[in-house]
Simulated scan of single mutants.
Amino acid sequence: MNKPIRKAILPVAGLGTRFLPATKAVPKEMLTIVDRPIIQYVVDEARAAGIEHIVFVTGRNKQVIEDHFDMAYELEDTLKARNKTAALELLEKHRPVPGATSFTRQQAPLGLGHAIWCARDIIGNEPFAILLPDVIIKSQVSCLKQMVDLYQNTGGNIIAVEEVPEDQTDQYGIVELDGELGANAHKISNMVEKPAPGTAPSNLMITGRYILQPEIFDLLSNQGKGAGGEIQLTDSMLALMKEQHFASLKFEGRSYDCGNKAGFLSANIAFGMDDPKLARELVPFMEEIIRKPLAAE
């Protein structure tokens, strides 16, 4: 029987330079999609998958993330005094239970692999999930829950993937497949980071959701610097692939890369349209905006 996936790592130490000056004092993970910070969507996805403990790997100036998932006594007392029951219930809904979060510091920007390695003692000797907080996924069933369901049948290591246009594969990490494992699931034989145009082994990009076995930590401990002079998670996954099973899951849903401005704005529109009241206000505005350049032509 496969060990359950109880813990997840969220690496949140990045500087968010693409959103300066907004991220000078506010972590990029706390920028809002409609009415929730980006990080809240990712945590909600993890909790919907049955994750019991979330490890945030932080850096300097990230204290507000910890505060967001803590109690706000003054605010809650004020809401109680004003009988704002709905607002209180909303805060309680999104607050983790005591002991369900840990925060550890990545003291230098040495790459994603190093950030994951920083959580090794908290994760221990059990499989775990990784959710990159730049990516939020809109789906009926939590993307990570879909991955956990596959893991329960296959064990090993799972990577979430989604299709990208053939002419864009050079912008992403791409998986190479080697046989089907079930609906939308395949065995992975290789991963290629930003393959040259026309050389990609598939059109399936790595989305930023992983289930990995704890042996990855030993590999990361001895992992030298790779691309960009950083310790790359992909390098250790390729080494682990020689010893363990890796599978891809083409999940049902759509991802939004909130690490870039177009993805961030797209996510705001997509999630905003889920609210009927907002949708009624947004649609006429978007139609007006779209018509303007056409009229100018």
Rank of each mutant, 00 (worst) to 15 (best):
S266C: 10
L240V: 07
M147V: 12
P11T: 05
T207Y: 02
I231F: 06
F103T: 00
I116Y: 08
N190F: 01
P96W: 01
V141C: 04
I122H: 06
S248C: 14
I206Q: 01
T104W: 01
E66I: 02
I9Q: 05
V12H: 02
A296W: 12
T78K: 11
L20G: 07
G272L: 07
P133V: 12
D44S: 05
R36S: 09
E297G: 13
T234G: 03
N83A: 14
I158L: 14
A279G: 07
Y256Q: 07
K138Q: 15
T169R: 08
A279W: 09
L282D: 09
Y151R: 08
R6Y: 08
K7H: 07
S221Q: 13
W117T: 00
G208V: 01
T32K: 07
E297R: 15
S189E: 11
I122P: 04
L212P: 11
V26M: 11
V192G: 00
N61H: 14
I54Y: 02
T85F: 09
V12C: 07
L249N: 10
K62C: 07
E74F: 12
P201W: 06
V12N: 05
N268W: 08
I9N: 02
V141W: 04
L79F: 05
L132K: 06
C118H: 09
A46W: 08
L249R: 12
A48N: 13
W117N: 07
A46Y: 07
G253K: 09
L249W: 09
P195V: 13
K80M: 14
V64L: 15
E287N: 14
R120S: 14
A129P: 02
R82C: 13
I9T: 03
L31Y: 03
Q40W: 06
T78H: 14
E162N: 07
A86S: 10
Y73D: 14
M286E: 04
S255I: 12
D274R: 07
A119Q: 11
K261M: 10
T23L: 09
Y172L: 03
S236D: 12
D134A: 06
K261E: 08
D235G: 10
P127S: 05
Q106I: 05
E215V: 06
G228I: 07
N184F: 04
G229V: 00
D275W: 06
A46N: 11
V42F: 01
L282F: 15
D170R: 13
R82A: 15
P197F: 05
P37G: 02
Q106Y: 02
N153A: 08
K84V: 01
P165R: 06
Y151L: 05
S266N: 10
F69W: 14
C118Q: 13
N2F: 06
H53C: 00
E180H: 10
L79H: 01
I116H: 03
P4F: 04
M205V: 02
D67I: 10
S236A: 15
I290L: 15
Q213C: 11
G124A: 04
G228C: 04
A86P: 00
E281R: 10
K277E: 12
L79M: 04
Y151S: 06
K225L: 15
A196T: 14
G59D: 02
I33P: 03
A48T: 03
G155V: 09
A115N: 02
